[in-house]
């Protein structure tokens, strides 16, 4: 039996969280989210387009009673900017959960961990449940946990890269050393990446581009759901030890002369 997946006092059935960006159209997005089985979906805070005010907000397509909306601070490069977006997101989404990103570099979208920690500390004091997007650095992860983050979210590989899990060792280490939930965020490209990531024992995984940029996003969302479940189940089952020589599966006795 699996343990419940709880973040910030809320318990979820699905360990897969999905983003809502980069979809060709809203209908595909809604169907992909359905197929993924995700209960937590991320959204971004942006200016209303004043020339297209009749365009329905994404909230019209995602029932807040069914999905926990997780506002992100994507695109923010300083702690102050991220805190501003977090506060706006709280007003827009009526919940205290924020996926905190403070980006430090445009090319890699790697986090500015100093700004991240600074913003996390303030937002936790303001009552936010902070899910902090970070790199696979254990020391930063420990500091984020100390700051009171509801979850620590190390990357598998750069956002939108689809390169898969680059450093399983550090993800395992972070999971082993933290009491806070660890959710791998960003970088998976296909189902096997999600499965291998979950096999490291992490609590969950968040992805967007791997689903949205697939040729068939709805079918990939389904594949990701199965992969996350399979990876989790395999972790709980406990894999066999690796060995570098063969060991026959069939009896060596009883062979004919």
């Amino acid at each position: 039996m699996d343990t419940p997946f709880t973040i910030g006092g809320r318990t979820f059935q699905s360990r897969l969280m999905v983003g809502t960006g980069k979809y060709q159209d809203t209908e595909t997005m809604v169907r992909a989210i359905e197929a993924s089985g995700a209960e937590i979906v991320t959204v971004a805070v942006r200016r209303v387009d004043l020339d297209r005010t009749h365009e329905a907000s994404i909230l019209h397509h995602l029932d807040p009673k069914r999905f926990s909306l997780l506002a992100n601070t994507a695109g923010c490069y300083t702690a102050d900017e991220a805190m501003r977006y977090a506060r706006l997101g709280r007003e827009a989404g009526f919940n205290e959960f924020v996926k905190l990103e403070v980006i430090g570099d445009q090319e890699t979208l790697l986090p500015d961990v100093q700004g991240l920690l600074e913003a996390a500390k303030v937002l936790v004091k303001e009552g936010f449940q902070v899910l902090a997007y970070t790199n696979e650095d254990l020391v930063t992860a420990l500091k984020l946990e100390d700051a009171g983050c509801a979850a620590v979210m190390p990357l598998a590989s750069p956002i939108g890269s689809g390169l898969g899990l680059l450093h399983p060792l550090w993800i395992r280490t972070i999971k082993r050393r933290l009491k806070a939930p660890v959710v791998v965020d960003a970088g998976v490209g296909t189902a096997s990446d999600a499965c291998v990531t979950m096999e490291q024992g992490v609590d969950g995984i968040l992805m967007n581009t791997a689903i949205a940029a697939a040729r068939d996003p709805v079918a990939m969302a389904h594949a990701m759901r199965l992969a996350v479940e399979a990876g989790r189940a395999a972790f709980l089952a406990g894999r066999m030890p690796r060995r570098e020589v063969a060991l026959p599966s069939s009896p060596t006795e009883g062979m004919l002369d």
Partner: peptide
């Protein structure tokens, strides 16, 4: 004055 809302994002 800033007027914001939720849009698709990761």
């Amino acid at each position: 004055i800033e007027l914001v809302h939720f849009v698709g994002g990761g």
